[in-house]
Design a binder for these strands. Structure first.
Lengths: 163, 163
DNA sequence: CCTAATTATCTTGATATCAAGATAACGGTC
DNA sequence: GACCGTTATCTTGATATCAAGATAATTAGG
């Protein structure tokens, strides 16, 4: 055990209190949760310089990744970002207010809407993404490439039972 | 690459659009974020049978782990659960309303307060924790013990630059 | 001691989120 | 072609969260 982290303390405490349970899952999932929380804070900070909120990035990045004319339906955005429809309506409203996206009628489905990235939105998300990748690279700096790949592979396998 | 996950699609899309960037960090951190999100949903479901919300568990579990007389200050609870003081005040209020915790004056510091788990609270958190560990065990079932330990170790190393 | 800086908790006001339901259009079936 | 279950999006109402500030007690310095 090279270093000790907060989860080692947490598991030790649980072990003291509940030695009847197998706490192996906690070793993995507590770290996932805590890392995600800390990562959120780090991302927020990386985006602050670019005047972009985390939720804004989530939506803009999905559109940017789509490529082509940077259009996706709200439904698709919902699935990509794992939020509810009410939340997405609200997000698209506010991003429209900032001039980062615009709503278009879907030519193939009159119920449907397409959300399109504007040039301003594209510029914003590209800058933010570069800052994000740079910040994350620093956080990974301690981990050799081999370990990093192994970690990514193990995380991929961990994701399968969820889908 | 045994199976393909959502993040493989995401990275492929980013690679198509931004081949100028090294996307190795995304392979790791996107999976962390997405796993945490999916894990939240799974936990919520595991707790639903026990009529416990996720935020309630976070607070009750911190008190339960403390052992002894199950008392912690709000400040300590804030640090354990990574929320703001306003949030914690509100959480303790609501848990008090449910009879799961009670507030006591700190005998050593007249500014201070101690939050103590009640017997009802202890019963609730113990049941919820058992359900949580069982649910997480199922999610880990595919991963051999050796891989699980390796994953926990890599995650521990990933946590160090955050603290 | 007395003051100033710090620490601990709570309050306030604004806001993002969710769950549930409303509205409207699609697509298959009879 | 009319019906009906499904799908896509938006609306509404309630609520949990955060940031900033208020209050009160402790601690450290002079």
């Amino acid at each position: 055990m090279p270093v000790r982290d907060e989860v080692d303390d947490l598991v030790e405490a649980w072990t003291r209190e509940r030695s009847d349970l197998d706490l192996a899952p906690v070793e993995v999932f507590s770290r996932i949760s805590r890392l995600a929380r800390l990562l959120d804070l780090a991302r927020r900070k990386a985006f602050a310089d670019h005047d972009i909120e985390l939720w804004e990035f989530d939506v803009l990045a999905a559109l940017r990744r789509a490529g082509g004319d940077y259009e996706l339906s709200p439904g698709r955005l919902i699935r990509e970002t794992l939020v509810t429809s009410g939340t997405m309506t609200n997000r698209v409203d506010r991003l429209t207010g900032r001039g980062f996206v615009e709503r278009l009628p879907d030519p193939n489905d009159r119920r449907g809407v397409l959300v399109r990235l504007t040039p301003d939105g594209r510029e914003a998300v590209d800058g933010a993404f570069e800052a994000l990748v740079a910040a994350e690279r620093d956080l990974l700096a301690e981990l050799p490439a081999k370990d990093r790949r192994q970690l990514a592979g193990l995380l991929r396998r961990l994701m399968t039972p969820f889908s």
